[in-house]
Amino acid sequence: MSDGAKAAVLHGALIAALFALHFVLPAYHHGNLARVMVLATYAMGYNLLFGYTGLLSLGHAMFFAAGMYGMALPVTHLGWAPGPALLSGLAAGALLSLVAGALALRTVGVAFLIVTLMFAQAVYLTVLYFAEWTNADDGLVLQRAERVLWGLDLSDAGVRYLAALVLFSVCLVLSLWLVRRPFGKVLIAIRENEARAEMLGYDVFAHKLGAVVASGTMSAAAGAAYGLLFGYAGASFAGVQYSILPLLWVLLGGAGTVIGPFLGALFTFYLIDITSGFTTAYMAVVGVVLIALTLFAPQGIGGEIRRRVWRGLP
């Protein structure tokens, strides 16, 4: 079987399994998995930049939040329907990633990390500053009536799960398609050896900017969907913790693999879920896992699969 066919089977099987789980999972885990799929979409967006292009951002919460507020603000204040609001969330993410990317990509290395962190902090503070519209930390709650998309009531658990699955599947296939296209292969080349890629005649800056916009827009899609599916947009989603989490998910699941973000988000979600049953200090687990991964398994789960089972894992 060719690598392409294998990849199609593997990722198709994941989507089919998630669909099958819709009918068998108990309510609690059913709800969790819906959440995980949206968060995994966010992680896939992050992975496009970190895993495939080799750019470590510490500010992706700004894109997630751009999608979330780009959707929730028009719904709350302008009475927009969820469909157009979803699009305005995407547009907000695309625009912000274009501007932030064009500026941040003038820096390299550690400065890039700090600049993205600072931009995200500015966005977070902006959400707090305009409390009159955003309701700051308390956030905006979307009413049931505001969450009916094309006749589908997204506050219903079953509809919500399937909507999350559609979002996840579309972004999974998009990721897969993107990294197998010439554009994605150039991103990988930039990750591996930027100077060489440039001396092959590739416009490195333009490709990186393209990666930031693709990554930021996918993250915004996850943010907008999260707000719509779970009926809430709060400032905490713009905070630094939501910039760190996708990094953790992708590191754990395997940076630069299409399936890694889902695995990482799933494991982390249940790890935190279980730990928070014992202590309020559950974020300590996040810290320990981050350190342990960096020290002992920098390639994550996906990297191990690639090393032991199938080198061609995309």
Binding site: L56, L247, T280, A281, A284, V286, G287, V288, I291, T294
Partner: peptide
């Protein structure tokens, strides 16, 4: 390594903060 150091010190941040909380 500059980037990996940032990642592990983020880990350290959460460990210290949460142990103090506990």
């Amino acid at each position: 390594d500059p980037e990996r150091t940032i990642v592990v010190t983020i880990g350290l941040l959460y460990v210290i903060q949460q142990v103090v909380l506990m």
